[in-house]
Design a binder for these strands. Structure first.
Lengths: 209, 209
DNA sequence: TAGATTGTTAATCGATTAACAATC
DNA sequence: TAGATTGTTAATCGATTAACAATC
């Protein structure tokens, strides 16, 4: 997953949540924040935040902390978030349609550009701001528009087939909602969302009434 | 989060995915599996699987591997998954409704028992197999039915307030879809799902065309 | 028996935390 | 200046991996 870079994967994975909290604090009117205060809001430790940021340079001032505006700007640049990314959704079932209408993507820099499905009955219908396209046109649209990001919301049984086609067409990041372990090349970023799996992780700790 | 137990949290968090793969293999007709083969399917290493399982005892046979049926049974018992758990959903927007209709919960042992919302226009309407109830009745239903698990799909602005009310009413596990960092007592299991955050984690690795 | 594979111990690796000199 | 807080180094902690005797 992480070949050349010297920054650990786990550090990268924490930066977006720092950014989210910083944006929230900016909206609340803060201008400056110490690693201690930021850590409390994020739910981590001051040392970890300073360590994580130090992989990319020194963004703070001793005695004062960090300029929130400046840190947001820097983190966005580091994470390639200083631009809008287009994403496509494959599978226009309940979940795919709910995601297509979800405003949170556009609000945070991800544009849902297209939505694909195989069912001729829904191909052509409007969901949110996009029209459902037939999945047979998926590869050509990916290549024509140079899409790099795809969200998979098809049934588990066909998720791997779709993933193969996406990778073949040039997709570099996949957010998979199907409850299966997808196999993709190491060069492709794979993130999984399975609410059932996440709930199952908590059951061990629950008291049986 | 993990007070008394000697089993690391991270081990517990991997067991449900082992179980998922074992169930898949059972459906494909396998009866026995080695740690090596299971590891390949799960996407981990044989050593890690054997180490993880060894926290709970010896489930395999040298030279043969593991009986899939037996291992499934044992893991389900360990994870408190040898029963059906009821969960409630708070927030009947697009996402809450999509989750209420999602068959994957029931198929894997989670029953969506109730769905709450504050909007009088949708209270009383049927979504999947449940009727939307007013959120004012949430606490009393939690206590009456002894619900332990809740899914939060309300807007970010009210997610913390809802979380507080859920915890106060006795909920022990929360699956949060709102894009905010919730503060809950250490005794409450919190899992977050934020698709935007997960996609942002991948942008760092994408090549800009 | 010979081959395969477990469960476990020891070695390695990597991540987190603590501490503090530097400095705003 | 005195107090606060950074960036970084070293110490600690915990998780993963490797190795292998035990044994099916």
């Amino acid at each position: 997953m992480n070949d050349t870079s010297s920054v650990p994967d786990i550090v990268i994975s924490r930066l977006p949540s720092y950014l989210q909290t910083l944006n929230q604090m900016a909206k609340e009117g803060w201008h400056t924040v110490s690693s201690k205060v930021l850590a409390e809001r994020v739910g981590t430790t001051a040392a970890q935040i300073r360590k994580d940021l130090s992989f990319f340079g020194g963004f703070g001032k001793q005695g004062t902390g960090y300029s929130i505006y400046h840190l947001i700007e820097q983190l966005q640049k580091i994470l390639n978030m200083d631009r809008v990314w287009s994403a496509i959704i494959v599978g226009a079932g309940d979940l795919g349609r709910a995601l297509a209408r979800y405003q949170g993507f556009a609000q945070r820099g991800i544009e849902i550009a297209m939505l694909f499905d195989i069912d001729p009955k829904i191909v052509g219908t409007q969901i949110g701001s996009v029209v459902v396209r037939h999945v047979d046109t998926m590869e050509s649209e990916i290549q024509k528009n140079n899409f790099k990001i795809s969200i998979i919301t098809v049934p588990a049984a066909v998720a791997q087939i779709i993933a193969n086609r996406l990778v073949e067409a040039g997709i570099q990041a996949i957010l998979n909602y199907a409850p299966v372990t997808l196999i993709v090349p190491g060069s492709v970023q794979l993130q999984n969302i399975d609410p059932v799996l996440q709930l199952q992780r908590t059951l061990y700790y629950l008291s049986d009434d």
